[in-house]
Each structure stands twice: as structure tokens, then as C-alpha cells.
Nucleic acid binder design. Structure first.
Length: 216
DNA sequence: TGCCAGGCCGGGT
DNA sequence: ACCCGGCATGGC
């Protein structure tokens, strides 16, 4: 099979049906970073409530958030679940951000994408998906984000093994797609929308799914 | 009502 | 190299 053509065709089909997704609704790169941690294994609706609380308390800035006690931060992000671990993880991330660049996104421009990725992964609580989400949606680096939906959908289409490693699944896309931030942004967003709007329905709407024609 | 959501870590084998 | 329990709320 020609993986490059297949991935391009699947993307075109999703775009045709969905249009553009305008994804990761956030008012700033910093809000993206925070949301990336808060959404770990958590419904986005709950994350929105937590972010609302942070804005309401006027602490959605790196300086103020790092000044909060962990239990104060935890109380604010309570609706997002796992609030104690997430408060720790946010503080870990913020301490790194301060040490690495004094809370400046642009100061990290000198790092290569893989260097920056390794830095993020060194933070306790930042795993591969969270790191790639931050790279793509906050730093606007071309790092393809894969998640449980990506694995499920591409496995169902017999394109990858069900237990493929995160890194290998990421390479499955990055080895053939151009290193393009807008493309990766939209590709990941489209996969999530297909999963939610077709696959995860109580009665899956496979007949009308934009990816249907790519099933063997 | 119970099940699950845009994971990750630490400890065990 | 895997496997598993813990972490926790709100929506359906």
C-alpha cells in the first residue's frame, strides 16, 4: 500500500465532510498548556469548568499559578478530576517553564522540536500525548498528536496493530506526511471528531462515516 | 444507574 | 518489556 496517498486521501475525505475544525479553543498558548494537563483522561467539558475557575480567580498566568499553594490550585481545578495529581503536574510543568525560559515561549525557539519534546517529557506528569499536544497546539511545532482514538480507528482499518507503541504510531504519520503544523493540527482534530461523531455513538453511524470507504 | 472521558506514574513481575 | 492499581469529577 502507499501510505502517503492513503493518509492524504483519508485527510481529504474528513476535510470534505467536516470542514476545518478550528481546534484547541484557547485564548493563549499558556491556556493550551494548562488544558493539555487538565484533559488527561478527562472529558473536555470538565476541563472547561476548571479553566473557567482559573480565569475567574484571575490566576491563569504562569506566575500566579506557580505562586498558589498546591491545595489552592487543586481546589480551583477540582471539576477536571484527579485534581491533586494535576495540581502537582501543573506545578512541575510551570517550574520547568520558568527554569527553561522564564515563562517565555519564544525563548525556546532555539531548541529543535525533538529537544523541546525531550524537555517536556522530562517533566513528571507530562507523557507523550500531553507533550505532543503542547508542542503542536501551544508551541506550534509540527509534532503529530496520537491518542486512543487514533489507535482505535487506524487499527480498525487494519493499518496498525492494536498494541502499537505510541512512538511508532506517531512515526506512522510523521514518516510520510509533510512537517506541517496546520496539517497536523487539523488531522488530529478531524480524527477526534470522526471518533466522537460516528464511532462512539450508541448506534455507530458507520454508513455515513467519512472514513468508511477506506475499510478494506 | 454504572460507565467512561483527548493519560501518566510507580511498583511489581 | 509488559501489567496493573491509583488518581476523581461530571455527563449521559
Amino acid at each position: 500500500m502507499n501510505r502517503e496517498k492513503l493518509l492524504n486521501d483519508m485527510f481529504a475525505a474528513m476535510q470534505h465532510t467536516l470542514g476545518s475544525s478550528n481546534w484547541w479553543p484557547a485564548e493563549s498558548p499558556f491556556e493550551v498548556m494548562v488544558g493539555a494537563v487538565l484533559t488527561q483522561n478527562t472529558n473536555w467539558k470538565n476541563v472547561e469548568k476548571a479553566i473557567h475557575n482559573l480565569k475567574n480567580a484571575q490566576v491563569l498566568t504562569p506566575e500566579k499559578m506557580l505562586c498558589l499553594q498546591q491545595d489552592e490550585l487543586a481546589a480551583l481545578i477540582r471539576p477536571a478530576g484527579y485534581f491533586n495529581v494535576k495540581a502537582k503536574r501543573l506545578h512541575n510543568l510551570l517550574r520547568w517553564f520558568h527554569n527553561a525560559s522564564e515563562f517565555s515561549f519564544s525563548k525556546l525557539d532555539t531548541l529543535s522540536m525533538e529537544e523541546l519534546r525531550a524537555e517536556l517529557l522530562s517533566v513528571n506528569g507530562i507523557g507523550q500525548e500531553t507533550a505532543d499536544s503542547i508542542l503542536l497546539y501551544a508551541f506550534e511545532r509540527p509534532s503529530f498528536v496520537v491518542d486512543a482514538y487514533t489507535r482505535r480507528i487506524f487499527n480498525r482499518h487494519s493499518l496498525v496493530e492494536e498494541d502499537i507503541y505510541y512512538e511508532d504510531l506517531r512515526d506512522f504519520f510523521m514518516d510520510v506526511l509533510p512537517q506541517d503544523v496546520a496539517l497536523y493540527n487539523e488531522y488530529h482534530a478531524s480524527i477526534v471528531r470522526v471518533a466522537k461523531d460516528w464511532c462512539l455513538k450508541k448506534a455507530p453511524q458507520c454508513e455515513s462515516c467519512p472514513l468508511k470507504i477506506f475499510l478494506e
